[in-house]
Design a protein around this nucleic acid. Structure first.
Lengths: 347, 347
DNA sequence: CCCGCTCGTGAGAGCGCTCTCACAACTGGA
DNA sequence: TCCAGTTGTGAGAGCGCTCTCACGAGCGGG
């Protein structure tokens, strides 16, 4: 480490509350009260303090405040994905956007972190538990990762996007109705006369992947068809993963006439694979995705999909976290938002 | 304010350095030295402290550390745009991504803020000057906004994306060669035999808009053609703005046979307007954009453009800011990265 | 054997704020 | 007139850490 100057390159040290108080002719306590907007302060004192603060461009030192209040007025938005995936997936971006908006409305700040490996996790844990954030919004938890449990046990309130694979009873989360949405899509395909309705599932180490597969299965069985494993191919939530899964699926079952893909991104890959095989999307093979990302409507043909309320999801997560931080009681640990089927030309 | 519990919902108060020291049988000073990785500490002390810390799950309180070091190990990524624009523009997203990566590599955290109005600005100023961030990356500064100057004067090192309209001598920034890129594009259009080369300029309250217009003008004049205002229409960096500007342009000058748009997003709007008028893009009217966002290559026809090194821009900004924070000397206040012409079917 | 080292250590002074507590200065009802 | 209640204020004790400084132990060279 070089001999870095403290506190930026500021010419003189930042003014302190002490100086404001002295200038206003009151005590530190009174100055603090006024500056925090505490009701009990005389008008005379208030004006003097405010004027003094303005005159010397006083800005309260947040670290000092934080030290005593135990609050940082900051929450973290943490994504367990590569930067690549984070920025390629409109779902994550939509969540980031709505979380950022909701946090700003509440007057807090958002720390945005992308987590790639275990060492990132340790670093983040130290950061969060160190008191630089009041809570964590956690997206894309994989497998049985114990991160949320560890955060909670260190006293950091955490809200997940999506039901976790383990610890679902004790953790807090907001989710879309993945099972219901997958049922909706699959049932529609079945009812529109398709005979061999396949699915390109999402990653099975994530609850969204499992739930959407469960919804598919449930709809198939409800139609009295029996669950046929040869119609199920596991992919992931990316176009490449969807494409490859569709290729494997078509090799095995060329008679497929409908595919429910576990995400729109995967569906885009599925459509590409179908084209490569000379199949017509919509007509020959119906395709339904999941998410309703903006690009879905721009596909050729426009992609039918299960619309997730992405903005509402992000807002709900953030509100829940903020309410927990505020110590509000009577909050539900789990919130499940409804989804809806959006039919376009692809199905 | 409700009576919120301090420090989350933690059962017992977080362990302090004091407790680690007691458990390890050393002083607070020694424990601190070990935990910070300070060289001078005996192996015996080191092991004892590390073991004690592990046993009681000690995590240093960052607010306390911050209070004495004056550093927060956090930088802000601030965009002066609406959430809408921030998330619709791949340029901003690319900058966010590369900044986030570079900051993480350095072991710091990123606070992500979108600023919509003047009151947001005041709030951010208080936050930044309050010591919760060590520096600011500022994007999309409009007009003669004095925010960077104010930040600097409060001791917060700031690095801008793009040369500011005012204060360019004293502020720090990283920019692409906007003038050169616009010249490149315009010259190419001229040299490929186009006679009425128009431009849909960017917003003129931003340096990128002005510089790209200046580059266009310089190329036109270098070709001995004289600057014709009827071939210039001001738009903004959005598809809608580009579309509307192109419509006005085509109304006025139906003889236009080439358009240089100040951004790819604007170019997409221009192409749409051209189509609506029954003009063929590439053939009838050549179009070149600016930025080389991923969507440029996916357009029909693929869009020629001036490629900005978005990732390198974000990385350079971040490195510069971190170097300033570290107090490194001999840093250049301005960095201008080269651009290149990418030719596709649209020109 | 003593001097001047280096090296690890601990005591203690803050960093700038909030918050509790005690107190003085007023109120108004008996 | 007195006493309870209210209201604004200041003194002072931390919050948990880092960092300076002084000190004692250990060392080799004169």
């Amino acid at each position: 480490m070089t001999a870095a100057p403290r506190k930026g390159n500021r010419a003189r040290p930042a003014p302190t509350l002490e100086e404001v108080a002295a200038r206003a002719g009151v005590s530190r306590a009174t100055a603090s009260r006024v500056l925090r907007g505490d009701a009990k302060a005389s008008d005379r004192a208030r004006e003097a303090v405010l004027a003094a603060a303005r005159e010397i461009s006083y800005v309260p030192n947040l670290a000092a405040r934080s030290l005593v209040t135990g609050r940082s007025e900051t929450v973290a938005f943490l994504v367990e994905e590569s930067e690549e995936r984070m920025f390629a997936d409109p779902f994550f971006l939509g969540m980031l956007r709505s979380a950022q908006e909701a946090v700003a409305v509440a007057g807090l700040q958002l720390v945005f972190t992308v987590m790639n490996g275990p060492e990132d996790q340790e670093r983040f844990l130290a950061y969060a538990a160190g008191g630089h954030v009041d809570g964590v919004l956690l997206l894309s938890l994989h497998g049985r990762d114990q991160l949320p449990q560890r955060l909670e046990s260190l006293g950091v309130p955490t809200v997940l996007s999506g039901r976790p694979l383990s610890g679902g009873r004790r953790l807090w989360y907001v989710d879309a109705d993945n099972v219901g949405g997958a049922e909706l899509a699959t049932r529609h395909l079945l009812e529109s006369g398709r005979e061999n309705v396949a699915t390109v599932a999402g990653p099975l180490d994530m609850c969204a992947g499992l739930d959407r597969l469960a919804g598919y299965r449930s709809a198939v069985e409800a139609a009295g068809l029996g669950y046929d494993e040869s119609l199920v191919e596991v992919g992931d939530f990316t176009p490449a993963g969807g494409h490859d899964a569709a290729v494997r699926l078509l090799d095995r079952r060329p008679d497929v006439d409908a595919i429910f893909a576990a995400s729109d991104l995967a569906a885009i890959g599925v459509v590409r694979a179908l084209r490569e095989r000379g199949r017509t999307v919509g007509d020959d093979v119906a395709v339904i995705g999941f998410d309703d990302i903006p690009a879905a409507a721009d596909q050729q043909p426009p992609l039918s999909t299960v619309k997730q309320p992405i903005g509402a999801l992000g807002t709900a997560m953030t509100r829940l976290l903020l309410d927990r931080i505020e110590g509000r009681s009577g909050l539900a640990r789990r919130t499940v938002l409804p989804v809806e089927l959006v039919l376009r030309a692809s199905a």
